[in-house]
């Protein structure tokens, strides 16, 4: 009984921390972008513009909750919920520290892959239900992009799995006690990074919403908190990918002196910042470039990495 309460407490705490982080990320990203673009970013609401987050939240909660009359109402409303649910569920398998995880699943990595595949439904349904040509185009792009990048995302992780010999994320972290996988699986890391950007639909891979061409892509017709959920979903996605990079390639909570959970968050935070830096640095590729890059470069690379890793593991005789 006590275990269940503790477990629930941990789960709720993780949920709270995640949502708070994603909200804070809005401020963080804008400040960081400002920093890298020689300007301030939000600096009027409160000290350093910190009250921008509550202000944005008040705004987004008090906006008219409106659905266009031509939309497919139930699907239109369900879509933003799907993204929140799938992304949050993915966090269930992330070990923040020894014992601090919602579920200790032995197929944790597969669960993550499954959930991230499901999240595309949110976008496709949202774009479809909006009955807007831009939304539909955005949704089409999203599904196509996810489909293409999911393939080698999974493949890129198989190297890690082979090295660790487990799908369980806790085991994978434990397997890095001697050497972080970012060294033996450097190619896998790069491939996963690219795929991770594509999965979280962040610049340079934000083609589904590409403001310049598609207005706002799949969420053109969304406003108020429904839009907010897409928004939060995107930031949660950043955290998720950063947390996974940390877990899979950078030793998770492992680190000297500081408590494990602090290590975990420090590493994750670094990758989040790096996400923002990428956004500040790169332009968006053309759609066909994106796809041909995925299929013609990344997929062979991932296969190669898999084959070499497999070969090395075989040769090492394990």
């Amino acid at each position: 009984m006590k275990g269940i309460i503790l477990q629930t407490g941990v789960a709720l705490a993780i949920l709270g921390v995640l949502v708070a982080m994603s909200a804070g990320l809005i401020w963080l990203e804008r400040r960081l972008l400002g920093l890298w673009q020689d300007r301030y970013g939000p600096n009027r609401a409160g000290r350093l513009g910190l009250l921008q987050v509550p202000a944005d939240m008040i705004k987004i909660f008090t906006k008219e909750d409106w659905a266009p009359p031509f939309a497919d109402k139930p699907v239109f409303i369900a879509a933003p919920a799907v993204i929140m649910v799938t992304v949050l569920l993915s966090f269930a398998v992330i070990p923040f520290a020894p014992g601090v995880a919602v579920a200790d699943l032995n197929i944790g990595l597969l669960f993550f892959l499954a959930m991230s595949s499901l999240s595309v439904y949110s976008i496709v349904l949202g774009g479809w239900a909006s009955k807007n040509k831009y939304s539909l185009l955005g949704a089409l792009r999203a599904s196509c992009q996810m489909l293409s990048y999911e393939v080698f995302m999974g493949l890129s992780l198989m190297g890690v799995v082979m090295l660790a010999g487990s799908f369980n994320l806790r085991d994978i972290v434990e397997a890095q006690r001697d050497l972080w996988f970012c060294v033996p699986q450097f190619a896998g890391l790069i491939i996963f990074l690219v795929a991770g950007f594509a999965e979280s639909r962040r610049l340079p891979f934000d083609l589904p919403e590409a403001e310049n061409e598609l207005v706002a892509g799949f969420h053109v017709e969304y406003s108020g908190m429904k839009f907010g959920m897409f928004f939060v979903g995107e930031y949660l996605g950043i955290i998720l990918i950063s947390a996974l990079i940390t877990t899979l390639f950078f030793g998770g909570w492992l680190g000297p002196v500081l408590p494990p959970v602090v290590w975990f968050f420090v590493k994750t935070f670094a990758f989040i910042c790096w996400f923002v830096l990428i956004r500040a640095s790169y332009y968006r590729p053309r759609y066909d470039q994106l796809l041909s890059f995925g299929w013609k470069v990344m997929l062979p690379l991932a296969l190669l990495n898999l084959a070499i890793t497999g070969g090395v593991v075989l040769a090492a005789g394990r």
């Binding site: 920093l35 890298w36 020689d38 300007r39 301030y40 830096l277 990428i278 640095s281 790169y282």
Partner: peptide, 16 residues
């Protein structure tokens, strides 16, 4: 290189 240049902008004067 592009990423590095952008990163270095952290230490520039703000134009705002």
């Amino acid at each position: 290189k592009a990423m590095w240049i952008i990163f270095l902008h952290m230490f520039r004067k703000r134009e705002t």
